[in-house]
Every structure is written in structure tokens, then in C-alpha cells.
């Protein structure tokens, strides 16, 4: 099979799972966090924390991994050139690093702390309070990083109108 064909398939799948990941990230930050504040005030938060959040987090973390893997597949043999910011691969390489930091935040900071917050893992009240702040800031950091990441993704590799060399 031609490599351009495979790259096209991976690029398409990368966008599909990337939309799922970043869509859920924006849902958490722009919808669920503010809604949960209001729901906690009127005693209806359990609907979100019990039924919505665990399912959203399931799709979120696996979509994050799938996005990284399909991104790595697009880079293919240029993976090292991108991650070492070589020549024309520097732009998409910085985007790939941002995506990698975001994947780390999802699996190492957000998911383990959300397990404590949602009661999926045992934690004291003090641990839950700390977990809330860590998960919140990691999620907000990812929202911030998604903006340059998407800029470099849409301008770095094949559409260099804005920052091309």
C-alpha cells in the first residue's frame, strides 16, 4: 500500500479522535465545571458526577491516547525529526510536544485525581481537595495548550501560510 494513502488514513483518524478528545476537554472546561458549581449549590451534582463524568472521562482519556498514536503514525519515519525540531519538522514538532504534554496531563494528572474526586478510588477529604485543584489546573493547562497545539497542527506540516519558512 502506498505510504501517502496510509498517511491520509491516519490523518483522517487523527482528526476524528482529536475532535473527540479536545471536544470533551472543552466540554469539561466550558460546560461541566461551571454547571457542577451550580448543581452542587442546588443538590443535583450527583447526576453529573455519577452518570456523566465517568463516561465522559472514559472517552476522553482513550481518545487522547488514540490522538497521540495516530499523530505518531502520521509522522512515521519523521517522528524523531519532529520531536528533535529538525528543519521543516520544527513547527509540527512543537505541536507534537504540546500534544505529548497534554497526553501526560490526561493520564498522569487528570485521570488519577478524577478517580479520587469521583469516589472511584479511596481518598480522604484532604486528598480529594488536593486532587480537585490538581485535576482542575491540569485540565485548564490542556485547554490553554490546545490553542497553540491546534495552530501548529493546522499550520505546521502541510498548510504553512501563516508561519511557513
Amino acid at each position: 500500500m502506498e505510504s501517502a494513502f496510509l498517511e491520509g488514513i491516519f490523518r483522517w483518524l487523527h482528526v476524528v479522535v482529536g475532535v473527540a478528545w479536545i471536544g470533551l476537554l472543552y466540554y469539561f472546561n466550558f460546560v461541566q465545571v461551571p454547571a457542577l458549581k451550580n448543581a452542587t449549590a442546588d443538590g443535583t451534582a450527583s447526576g453529573i458526577t455519577k452518570h456523566v463524568a465517568p463516561l465522559a472521562l472514559l472517552w476522553f482519556r482513550w481518545a487522547a491516547l488514540a490522538t497521540w498514536l495516530t499523530g505518531a503514525a502520521i509522522l512515521g519515519q519523521n517522528f524523531v525529526s519532529a520531536f528533535t525540531l529538525q528543519g521543516e519538522w520544527a513547527e509540527i514538532g512543537v505541536g507534537a510536544w504540546l500534544g505529548t504534554i497534554m497526553l501526560f496531563n490526561v493520564w498522569v494528572l487528570i485521570w488519577p485525581n478524577q478517580q479520587k474526586i469521583l469516589g472511584l478510588k479511596d481518598a480522604t477529604d484532604k486528598e480529594k481537595t488536593a486532587a480537585r485543584r490538581i485535576a482542575f489546573l491540569a485540565s485548564r493547562t490542556n485547554t490553554m495548550l490546545s490553542i497553540p497545539m491546534l495552530f501548529l497542527m493546522t499550520n505546521g506540516l502541510s498548510h504553512k501560510g501563516l508561519i511557513g519558512l
Partner: peptide, 30 residues
């Protein structure tokens, strides 16, 4: 100083500022 990530607007503005900084570095230094 307040953490800009505590507000949605602060988070978005930080993202755009970071984009400009990275684009400048890429265009001029890499």
C-alpha cells in the same frame, strides 16, 4: 497575582499569547 487559568477567559487569552510566542520563536529562531 491571580492565576489566569482560574478563569476561562484568562485560559483562552493565555493560549493565544502562548501561540504568538511560539509562532515568533519558530519563525525567527528555528
Amino acid at each position: 497575582m491571580k492565576n489566569p487559568l482560574d478563569s476561562i477567559v484568562g485560559t483562552i487569552i493565555s493560549g493565544f499569547v502562548l501561540t504568538l510566542i511560539l509562532a515568533y520563536i519558530l519563525k525567527n529562531f528555528l
